[in-house]
Simulated assay, not measured.
Amino acid sequence: MDHSDRTRRAGDPERRLRRLEKRLNKSEMRRAELEHLMDGGQAFQRRVIQEVEDAKAEIERLYESLSLEQARTNQLLRSIMPEAVAEELKERGRVRPRRTKSATVMFADFVNFTLHTENMDPVALVRTLDRYYSAFDAIAASHGVEKVKTIGDAYMCVAGNLADVQSSEHAAQMCRAAVDIMKAVADLRSEETNWSIRIGLHSGPISSGVVGSERLSYDIWGDTVNTAARVADATGINEIFLSESTHALLSDDQGTTYHGEVEAKGKGLVRLYQLIT
Score class of each variant (00 low, 15 high):
D130F: 05
E83D: 14
G260R: 03
F110V: 07
V211M: 14
N161I: 06
S190R: 14
I181Q: 07
R198F: 02
L76D: 01
L216P: 06
E35Q: 15
I139A: 02
T150W: 02
V158P: 00
H36G: 14
K56I: 14
G260A: 06
A84Q: 10
G268P: 05
G41L: 15
F110W: 04
A141F: 04
M156D: 03
G11E: 11
A154W: 04
G200S: 07
S245V: 08
R271T: 09
S4M: 11
V123S: 14
A186P: 02
Y133E: 01
A32E: 09
L269M: 13
I206W: 05
F113R: 09
I59G: 04
R127Y: 07
I199Q: 03
S245Q: 13
T256M: 04
R15I: 13
Q254A: 15
R46T: 12
M174H: 00
N161Y: 01
Q70E: 15
N74F: 08
M106T: 07
R271H: 11
M120N: 11
E169L: 15
R61N: 10
I206G: 03
R15T: 12
M29A: 14
L275T: 02
L269S: 10
I240M: 03
M182S: 11
T128K: 01
A264V: 13
Q75N: 14
E214W: 01
R271P: 07
G260W: 05
L242H: 04
R98L: 12
I181Y: 01
D54Q: 13
S207A: 15
T193N: 06
P122L: 03
A178P: 05
L242A: 06
A140K: 00
G209Y: 06
Q166S: 14
R271N: 09
